[in-house]
Design a binder for these strands. Structure first.
Lengths: 194, 194
DNA sequence: GTCTATACGAAGATAGAC
DNA sequence: GTCTATCTTCGTATAGAC
């Protein structure tokens, strides 16, 4: 009879395999795009067993991609908790730092997984979820700016512009493999912070 | 003996087939991304004969994609000639209109072909060409703003921010299949026009 | 320049044993 | 939950006739 402890270990390992697959998918989507991300790559990178794909993701690739962008989107929202109560400038700086890190640490090979999916899918379901992620970012950023004393309308307007411009700036710097475009946009965004 | 006229007609038809393939590739890249754009789709959409792909593009898919983003990028630069001598606000409005048209006319199914390639390729050659296109847009826009009386440094800084924010805004509105995100970013960009 | 046919590989997905 | 094997489809690319 299998002990409770063994079962718990098995659950953790299983959860871990699923989690690793999702994390690998996030990275690959950010580097190679939607159709450029194959199951075989996800498995190789995550070390997960081939047989477990359709166990964890019976909905196939779309389900894995969905889980990946959701995880990536939620993590970004959570990371923003660190600037709760900070100044307006500090919030903008922090958000730009997140993207700067992605570019620098990947040596310009990675961008935003959610954007990559958005520009390469027809699935209304994936688009809906991508849109929800962007709205969640905007809502969280706006909330932070309001806490910093910005009026709600300005906060919301600036938040979405910050998101759009950051996404674009990351892509421009990826193309050029140089931080210059990103930094130029970042400077402009900081200078116009509410 | 084949007449000069027949030869000229043949040249035009050939050129036209090549041109149609490039145009189809631009549209498909903007809608489905890099790997989502297959030769079979390009042929179907352009009506070009299957046997002529490797005749016109011996370098294969990369060469076709390269020609497509170059054509798309150059057309954008040329279209900007229409606002030569216009006011700063008119220039910004015009550039935003270009992207608004892409979204509306495609019913949110299309975005920017150059961006789609940028986020989905490892090819340094394609990345270099994408970067060159973005720089050409920036240079042309900055030039126009300077003509409108803006100082060169501000013009350059605003131009690249406008490009980055527009690219991001198009993606956000595509995800949501609604002009709202784009219009919110557009309003902010217009309000901060130099 | 264009056609058909086909090679070749990769990718998503499924089946059934363990 | 995981493994191996396999099916099917599709994509790029090439060969050779016309």
């Amino acid at each position: 009879m299998t002990s409770v402890i063994v079962k718990e270990v098995e659950r953790i390992v299983a959860t871990d395999a699923r989690r690793k697959m999702i994390e690998s998918a996030v990275t690959l989507l950010a580097m190679r795009g939607l159709q450029g991300t194959a199951f075989s790559d996800v498995l190789e990178r995550s070390g997960a067993p081939r047989g477990s794909i359709y166990h964890h993701f019976p909905g196939g690739k779309d389900q894995l991609v969905d889980a990946a962008i959701t995880a990536s989107g939620q993590r970004t929202v959570q990371i923003l908790d660190a600037v709760e109560g900070a100044s307006s400038i500090a919030i903008t700086t922090y958000f730009l730092d997140l993207w700067r890190d992605v570019l620098v640490r990947s040596k310009f090979r990675a961008g935003c997984a959610v954007l990559a999916v958005t520009v390469a899918t027809d699935s209304t379901e994936l688009l809906d979820h991508a849109a929800a992620i962007f709205r969640a970012w905007q809502a969280r950023l706006a909330e932070l700016y309001v806490s910093a004393g910005v009026d709600p309308t300005t906060a919301s307007s600036y938040a979405i512009t910050l998101i759009a411009a950051s996404e674009g700036a990351v892509a421009l710097s990826r193309a050029q493999r140089d931080m210059a475009p990103f930094e130029e946009v970042a400077a402009h965004l900081l200078a116009t912070t509410p």
